[in-house]
Amino acid sequence: MASLRLLFWAAVAAAVHELGHVAAVKALGGRVASLRLTGVGAVIRPQRPRLFSYWEECLVALAGPAASFLLALGAAAWGRHFGGGDAYLLAGVSLAFGVFNLLPVGPLDGGRILRALTNRWAGPDAGEKVCGGLTKVLALSLAALGLWVLRQSGNFTLLLCAAWLLWRKEGKP
């Protein structure tokens, strides 16, 4: 039963995170053309009359973690004032979503920010090279740590994360 509660609050946290991105796209004058759920998250494809600037791309990417952090604060405040383990569970899950998505790798929000800023300062395509290299280093580090964890506890979650980072298409979850 506890795992179903965790799954439910994780889905709520993920939805709020993605709604943060949608709100930012709309605030910048864009529209959402499609929203596709995948096994590791959601992919939002904006429909834009013009391309976002590098700074606007950063704002859209930051909006998801910002929404996650705001939800975590709100849920923690709710739990503090009214009690309830579910509020703290939601706060923790939402905080984890926000922090994880700021990692500067691959298709995560931190990777989008890194690509946009690197492209802005070093020219087009520089961000893909930098982010791609950093993603490979992190994925291989996760794989090594995952092998150690697997031997210690039998948990293979880090190996799955490493595989996802290594075998995904650049820029696509």
Rank of each mutant, 00 (worst) to 15 (best):
L159F: 06
A143Q: 03
P124D: 14
T157S: 14
T135H: 03
A126K: 09
V149K: 04
V130F: 11
A122E: 13
G146K: 01
L150R: 09
G111Q: 10
L108F: 12
I113M: 06
R112H: 15
G110N: 05
N155K: 09
T135K: 00
S153N: 03
A144V: 11
T157K: 10
A143T: 01
N155D: 14
Q152Y: 07
N155Y: 09
A116G: 02
A139D: 08
G123R: 10
L134G: 06
C161D: 12
L140I: 08
T157G: 12
L142D: 06
L138Y: 00
L140W: 12
L150D: 11
W121G: 00
R120G: 04
S141H: 03
W121F: 15
V137L: 11
C131V: 13
G110E: 06
F156A: 15
K129H: 12
A144M: 09
D109Q: 09
W121Q: 03
L117R: 04
Q152S: 09
L142Q: 02
L134C: 02
T118E: 08
P124E: 15
D125L: 14
A116S: 09
K136D: 11
L147V: 10
L145Q: 11
P124V: 14
W121V: 10
A144G: 11
W121Y: 15
W148A: 08
S153E: 10
N155G: 05
I113T: 01
W148V: 13
L108M: 13
P107Q: 15
G127T: 03
L117M: 05
T135W: 04
C161Q: 14
A139L: 05
L108P: 02
L150E: 11
S153L: 08
S141D: 11
V137I: 07
V149I: 10
V149H: 01
N155M: 07
L117N: 03
G127S: 02
L150W: 14
N119S: 08
Q152G: 05
V130I: 05
L150K: 09
F156C: 10
G111P: 04
K136I: 14
T157W: 13
A139Q: 02
L140V: 10
Q152F: 08
D125A: 13
G133S: 01
W121R: 07
S153D: 06
L108S: 07
F156K: 06
L150A: 15
G110P: 07
Q152W: 10
R151F: 12
V149E: 12
V149W: 05
L142K: 00
C131S: 13
L160M: 10
